[in-house]
Simulated assay, not measured.
Amino acid sequence: MHQLFTPIRIGRHTLPNRLVMAPMTRSRADDAGVPGDIVATYYAQRSGAGLIISEGVYPSATGKGYVRTPGIHNDAQVAAWKRVTEAVHAKGGRIFMQLMHSGRISQPSLLPDGALPVAPSPIKPAGQTWTADGLREFITPRALSVAEIAEVVADYRLATRRALEAGFDGVELHAASGYLPEQFLSSGSNQRQDEYGGSVANRARFVLEVLEAMVAEAGGDRVGIKISPEMNFNDVIDATPQETYTYLVEQLRRLDLAYLHVALFGASVDYHALLKPRFDGAYLIGGGLDQTAAEALLALGRVDAAVFGSAFLANPDLPVRFRQGAALNAPDKATFYTPGELGYTDYPALHAEETA
């Protein structure tokens, strides 16, 4: 029997299979960060996943990092997301919201009153971000004060409350891809001299405080975290990643989280072997997996559930295709972040009724 199709307990939820849909930015919200009906259709089409993790959702207006990404900081956004969760639940699915504060990976044109992006330290990242006017260079952010850090933590807590009000089954902290939590965690982007910088314990403080706030609202059994050691995306680099992530994961034990989601892309060591024994909840692996690789990892006991990204993007009925050994649709990269249905809700299913 394929282990991908065996049930698993993740936090308070029992999932019917071990296929997890990865969080993927799709840029289909409106300029106010409100997802429309097309977003409900997209996620409902993929409700055969054991668990869906939503695209990154900014917890506050100052956390937005890209054009047409969604938020969860006002009533209109909550109401819109409620239509999404209702559509997923109507088809028997389960969905967590990924909370993503972009920090320095933003532009004033995306933020209220043209504000500067915020970060642990005023260090300009290399690279560009998408705005309404196309690609723009990152700029030098301003450093958050200690008082402002507490406000950001409170924003995450309120965003968690709003996500639950919108009907999500749980929340995931995005602590990878060079966004604000990883900016605090990594020595290259965090050069603070206070209690949030310097030592590994200090640099991990922000991530742990955010998780504590999220757990206070949802309970640990409805909270997960995503990390990606050595991914170095968005110009975030840490000098001692093995030490950093070992410490962080060991600290997670006291929070009794639902899962640890680890995505690896060309890391120098086997972080799964390093981190899984240090975490007591479900261990999720992502990063370029196919069905064969996922089944092998499950058989070896190295993973509890497998996370699929572009395969789910292009195949709304991915579990059906895996069961039947059917060919997969190829993802169209040109439409990953474009508005509208093209390359979003129009990928065909094997059987129309599967995603109708």
Rank of each mutant, 00 (worst) to 15 (best):
R46D: 07
S47K: 06
A49P: 09
G50Y: 01
I52M: 13
I53R: 03
E55R: 12
G56T: 11
V57I: 15
V57R: 05
S60N: 11
T62R: 10
T62L: 15
G63F: 12
K64I: 12
G65L: 04
V67H: 13
R68M: 07
P70D: 04
I72G: 02
I72R: 01
H73S: 13
D75Q: 13
A76E: 14
V78N: 04
V78T: 12
V78I: 15
V78W: 01
A79P: 02
W81Y: 05
W81N: 02
R83K: 15
R83G: 07
E86M: 08
A87K: 03
A90W: 05
K91H: 09
K91A: 07
G92S: 09
G92R: 00
G93R: 00
R94S: 13
I95S: 02
F96E: 06
Q98N: 02
Q98C: 02
Q98I: 00
L99M: 09
M100W: 11
G103A: 09
G103R: 03
G103N: 04
G103Q: 05
G103V: 08
R104A: 05
Q107V: 03
P108V: 00
P108H: 09
S109L: 14
L110K: 03
L110G: 03
L110C: 10
L110Q: 03
L111D: 10
P112C: 06
D113I: 05
G114I: 11
G114Y: 08
A115K: 03
L116R: 12
L116Y: 07
P117T: 07
V118Q: 12
V118R: 06
I123T: 08
I123W: 07
P125Q: 08
A126K: 11
A126E: 10
G127L: 05
T129Y: 01
T129H: 04
W130I: 09
W130L: 11
T131A: 10
L135S: 10
F138M: 14
F138Q: 10
F138H: 14
I139H: 07
T140P: 06
P141L: 00
L144Y: 01
L144A: 06
L144S: 04
L144D: 00
L144W: 03
S145A: 11
V146F: 06
E148T: 12
A150V: 09
E151H: 09
E151W: 03
V152R: 02
V152G: 06
V153A: 05
V153F: 04
A154D: 14
A154H: 06
A154N: 05
D155A: 13
D155Q: 12
Y156Q: 04
Y156L: 01
Y156W: 08
R157H: 05
R157Y: 01
L158Y: 00
L158F: 06
A159K: 02
T160D: 01
T160K: 04
T160H: 03
R161Q: 12
R161K: 11
A163Y: 02
L164I: 15
L164D: 08
E165Q: 15
E165M: 11
A166E: 04
G167M: 15
D169Q: 03
E172S: 02
E172Y: 05
